[in-house]
Amino acid sequence: MEKIKGRIWILIDEKGKLINDIDTDQIYHNAYLHITDINEMGKYALGNLKGWEDFSKKAKKGDIILAGKNFGAGSSRQQAVDCFISLGISLIIAQSFGAIYKRNAINSGLAILTFPELDEKLSCFENGDKVEVDLLTGEIENLTKKMKFQANPVSKVQYEIYKAGNLFKYAKK
């Protein structure tokens, strides 16, 4: 079983607290909804989230995002998922996701993992740490701090769509 490995960005506010309810307008502002080329979308990722406006300049391919509760609340816009794919983000770990966001992410083949205890374990993670994640078991290992954590394993369905690339590629199989 191959694992996802990457450098982490924790979406926290100036007080160091996880930001909850990051909505799709903060992830991808409606001013850019007319853009249809996914390559163009990355530069607007988190562009409307206070303190994170420059995220797209800092992020590198393969990076992993850690977020609080109800990530991706709000509208059904697919761009709020695609902007992260555009940047090459390999995985989003959140305490919980907005229901439509979850459907959109899974259908687009963006790996997402629900980690309800992130808030309690926040002191065990720092921006820039390297983590390794096994989607099927839900195990998160902080390689930098040499600590292990348990998140909710992804469902079989989600994993199959992720492996295929997206929902459409999955259907062709």
Partner: peptide
């Protein structure tokens, strides 16, 4: 109700995933 990606898939396969 679902988005157009989901419904496209449903047209083609007659299935959807659901939590």
């Amino acid at each position: 109700g679902m988005g157009d990606v989901d419904i496209t898939f449903a047209f083609r396969t007659g299935k959807t995933w659901f939590e």
